[in-house]
C-alpha cells in the first residue's frame, strides 16, 4: 500500500533531482554562450570523471579515509592501461570485470 507520505517524499526527491538536470539544458541551449563558459565546460567531463573515479579507488569507509591497498585500485591500473592502448569501451568493461573477479578470488 502506498502511503501519501511516501509518495510526497519521492515526488519531492524527483523534483529536486530533475530541476538541476533540466535548467541548464533549457537555458543554455537558447543563448549564445560566452567563450569562457564554453572553454570552461570543455574541461568539465574530464574533471567530473576523474573526481568520480579517483576517490572511489583510493578512499573507503564513512567517514572516508585513505586506503591505497584496495583491489579496486590494483585492477584500475591495468584496466586504465588497456583503455589507453585499445580505446575500446566494450573491451575495457569486460577486462575490468574479469580482473576484478580474479582479484576477488586471489587477493
Amino acid at each position: 500500500m502506498l502511503s501519501a507520505e511516501y509518495l510526497a517524499v519521492i515526488a519531492g526527491m524527483g523534483v529536486v533531482t530533475y530541476v538541476p538536470r533540466w535548467l541548464p539544458l533549457v537555458f543554455l541551449t537558447r543563448r549564445r554562450l560566452p567563450l569562457w563558459l564554453v572553454e570552461w565546460l570543455d574541461f568539465i567531463p574530464a574533471s567530473i570523471l576523474s573526481a568520480l573515479v579517483v576517490p572511489y579507488l583510493i578512499t573507503t569507509g564513512d567517514p572516508r579515509h585513505l586506503d591505497i591497498l584496495r583491489p579496486e585500485l590494483f585492477v584500475a591500473v591495468p584496466t586504465f592501461a588497456f583503455a589507453l592502448v585499445t580505446k575500446s569501451l566494450a573491451g575495457t568493461v569486460v577486462v575490468g570485470m574479469f580482473l576484478f573477479r580474479l582479484a576477488g578470488i586471489y587477493l
Binding site: 576523474s50 573515479v53 584500475a76 575495457t92 580482473l99
Partner: peptide, 30 residues
Amino acid sequence: GIDYALIAMFLCLLVFQLRGMIYVIIAAIA
C-alpha cells in the same frame, strides 16, 4: 566481477576525455 563494470566504463570514458596534455593535468588536479 560485475561490480566493477561502471568503474571500468568511467576509466575508459576518462581516457577518451584526455585529448591533450591540458586535459591530463586538469583530470589530475580534479
